[in-house]
Design a protein around this nucleic acid. Structure first.
Lengths: 102, 102
DNA sequence: CTCCCATACCTAGACTCCCTAGGTATGGGA
DNA sequence: TCCCATACCTAGGGAGTCTAGGTATGGGAG
């Protein structure tokens, strides 16, 4: 996902807590069906985000089965803001380079 | 450069032929000094683009020394358009995901 | 006139990131 | 009862880029 997987996950969690499988659906929806994350990418990424302290997880066991629900931490929200700014800068830079050409 | 190196090089060459070192400067300028490509990334990428038939090179030997000047081919210009569209779609998708969050 | 720096090109190897391909478990519908 | 969707997970590999080195030349400083 071009190095933006963490940003996409943090950004999706910015809309509220969710479990891994639901995050994949959320990214798919909010991207206008353009982005399709894979489980094999998402779960390791969520573990990494948790190890970094940007998300926290809790297990939920109900009639629907076992789920691991993730939520942004305070540090995670700050990181989201930082990375979103970084992304804005990068995409503006690419637009600048393409500029007259495209 | 987040998987967009080829696009940046093709886009820069869209503004006219140039040699490798000059392309680095061109990207730096046009990105508002935000993007700094490395020689170790640029030269192999240019060789790959040439192998794919999207750019063509010629050696220039003059008083300033030896340079390899690259130019977009017809196929390269088509590829640039295609990748620029792809980039637009991707960045729109990311904006969509961040949307309410950022 | 000599040394060093900027320009200019190149490559091997390492590293990061993500995907592929597999695996486990459960609940519900055919 | 079987299979599929949901839900989670990991090992290994591949693509792409960066690090760190190397070569060569022209021009300015000392």
């Amino acid at each position: 996902m071009n190095g933006q997987l963490d940003l996409l996950l943090l950004g999706s969690l910015g809309a509220g807590e969710a479990h891994g499988y639901a995050l994949i659906a959320r990214v798919h929806e909010r991207s206008g069906a353009r982005l399709e994350l894979r489980e094999g990418s998402v779960y390791p990424a969520l573990h990494k985000l948790e190890a970094a302290g940007w998300v926290a997880s809790r297990w939920v066991d109900d009639a629907d089965g076992r789920r691991r629900v993730y939520a942004l931490t305070g540090a995670g929200r700050a990181e989201l803001v930082r990375r979103a700014e970084e992304w804005k800068g990068f995409s503006a830079a690419v637009r600048g380079v393409l500029g007259a050409a495209s």
